[in-house]
């Protein structure tokens, strides 16, 4: 391992949170609503992750993302469990890629339930694909300075031409 004992690595306690133990069909069927519900924390986490390029520095943002997903899935479970299950079953059996196109009816039922109970519309097509701005309170990271060695001395002046026919002149 390249990590020495002086390098900071978060402890197990810091890293242990209840994880989302859900299958891909659940993720796929709630993806749009989940993404919209947790839009801000997701953007915060992804911005941190891309700016810092260091998973150690975005642990708290990541925990927030997972907590938000728990919150949303709990709300769905409380109010729309039957509709969600129906939709999820359909997605689960909808082809090799779990496409949405085969499940419009159950999707409409689920969307209506989410709209009624959580007051959230399905985001429009391309909502997550487009470039979105996010204002964050986290300061922009500055890389620690790269200390370079002393500059090498300049090369000698080669612009002065010598005449080989006069013999060596620099001696």
């Amino acid at each position: 391992m390249p990590f020495t004992n002086q390098d900071y690595l978060p402890s197990y306690e810091e890293l242990t949170v209840p994880e989302l133990e859900i299958t891909s069909a659940v993720f796929r069927s709630t993806a749009h609503h989940l993404g919209k519900y947790c839009d801000n924390v997701s953007k915060e986490f992804m911005l941190c992750r891309s700016e810092e390029g260091d998973p150690r520095k975005c642990i708290n943002e990541g925990k927030e993302v997972t907590r938000c997903a728990f919150e949303f899935l709990g709300l769905v479970k409380k109010s729309c469990l039957a509709e969600f299950n129906q939709y999820m079953q359909c997605i689960d059996h909808s082809g090799g890629e779990m496409e949405f196109k085969n499940c419009r009816k159950t999707q409409a039922t689920f969307d209506k339930c989410v709209k009624d109970n959580l007051d959230q519309d399905r985001p429009e097509l391309g909502f997550f694909g487009k470039v979105r701005l996010h204002s964050s309170n986290r300061p922009k990271p500055t890389p620690s300075p790269h200390i370079l060695p002393e500059r090498a001395p300049d090369p000698p002046d080669f612009s002065r031409k010598t005449d080989p026919s006069k013999g060596p002149q620099n001696w």
Binding site: M1, F3, L9, P10, S11, Y12, L15, T16, V17, E19, L20, F27, R28, A31, H32, L34, G35, K36, C38, V41, S42, F45, M46, R49, P55, R56, C58, I59, E61, G62, K63, V65, T66, A69, E97, E99, F100, K101, P123, L125, G126, F127, F128, G129
Partner: peptide, 28 residues
Amino acid sequence: ALELRDARIAIEPFILAERDRAFLKHIR
């Protein structure tokens, strides 16, 4: 296809957060 891509983009943070934690645990 855009709808599917949207769904994939939307759940990326959730998977990445969990993955980061698992990776750091493994490194430790």
